[in-house]
Write a protein that binds this DNA or RNA. Sequence first.
RNA 1: GACCCCAUCGUCUAGCGGUUAGGACUCAAGAUUUUCAUUCUUGCAACCGGGGUUCGAUUCCCCGUGGGGUCGCCA
Length: 480
Amino acid sequence: METINDIRVRFAPSPTGLLHLGGVRTALFNYLFAKKYNGTFILRIEDTDRTRFDENSVENLISSLCRLGLDYDEGPYKEGDSKPYFQSERLDMYHKHAKQLIDNGQAYYCFCTKDELDDMRKKQEIAKETTKYDGRCKNLSDTEIQAKLEAKIPFVVRMKIPSDTVFDFEDLVRGNVQIASDLVEDQVILKADGFPTYHLAAVIDDHYMRISHVLRGEEWLYSTPKHLFLYQAFGWSPPIWVHLPLLLNTDRSKLSKRHGDFSVSTYLDAGYPKEAVINFVALLGWHSADDRELFSLGELIQEFSLERITKSAAIFDITKLEWMSGWYIRSLPLQEVAHKCRVYFEKEGIDIHDEVKYLKVISRARDQINKLPDITLHAKMFYTETPLNQECSEIVQQDISQKVLTWFVKALQEGEEPMDKEAIQILVSKCSAELGIKGKALYFPLRIALFGDCHGPDIPLLIDLYGKQESLSRLHKHIL
RNA sequence: GACCCCAUCGUCUAGCGGUUAGGACUCAAGAUUUUCAUUCUUGCAACCGGGGUUCGAUUCCCCGUGGGGUCGCCA
């Protein structure tokens, strides 16, 4: 494992909803980068918006990461030298730093009301100007400020962005980025309810948590000057910026909960293996140097590099996830898949205590599914005999079919045990030769009797799977 | 609207001046000498448009077009 000096990254979601695929991608890239360089992956909960806070989503965030196997090194409910990891528990620190900025003249009190601000923006829009706080509270006198504070007029604190400068920074994905300070507004850093905004909290936390690289969604790119301003104001050195391209809906809009349910837990619950979800998400905005696309988490850690992150946004299209999911179901160890499928059989009340048979069933049925829960759809006929449809019923009643069935029952009874697939195949050939029947006329009646359908596994597999007794019993039932 | 970013098959993408523009998913056909599924093979399918620069542009530059992001006391 390589080591560049002390890589520390964080995934810092706000608990306002379920963890969605975009968030997983951000978390995954942070995780991969940290693990590749033997660094630290931190989870921080940005719960500074009390109006949108949702208790369940904290639980969902953590459990989703856990289910995906993206374990964090520091974070909620874990020890770490930069705790606490909930921003709501770090308010003192934010207040202290906001005060420092005010004292240094780099931030100021603002007493504007929501109505005033709305009005201001409306006028700017009409005048076709960029909507931006006009700084009307920037130059209040000390006495004015004191009076308003004493009168308990609600206030916020805004950063005092200098005019006529250019914020210039390097982004590992975007390259050199320059943004004129005139475009950056005096962003609120402390809200009227005493909570910090993202900008203040994230900068302070990233600093004290010694974050070396900030990997976050591209929607943050234009906030970066505000963060840079804060770093400068505090005299801190900023982290290395890595803004990830956005994930889009099929209609090219930004991936969001409004456009359907993209929460990982939903996909996991639906039975897409975590390996598939991770592999698939990794390929959204990142690609290895060669043509390889199938990677385990460990292999991703090996191969991942920031340099190969794409610039353009990616559309999330479930088709490839479906395929990849099927691929993993077929490629994961049989025992593991069998184990994961157990619950679905139990739900349907199917008795799978015969382990040898169960593994054979899974081995065949896994070929036909892309999602775990679909397994029973393709497996229950191995356990229960379902009524035949019209077509099959007619086929099995034909004289020629009856001849095959009768011959086979006799041969099977007389056959020596144990009968492996090869022996059964020989029996099938013998049947064909002796009766002069071949092709569908031979296979369909047998398969219908054994499996309940003319389409399905080949005969040796079927008989091997059931064993002699059950095979005989099934065949018998269709002899008139 | 203002500012900025992005642009290769339908989708995810490789490509970093000279390639028959490659891979994967999807779709189609064929093979695996019964079917279904798996697997394998083959095929269909792309450089947004226009100008430059250059001996030569998918690649570099400009303009246009399209898409996206930002413009909150949300993150």
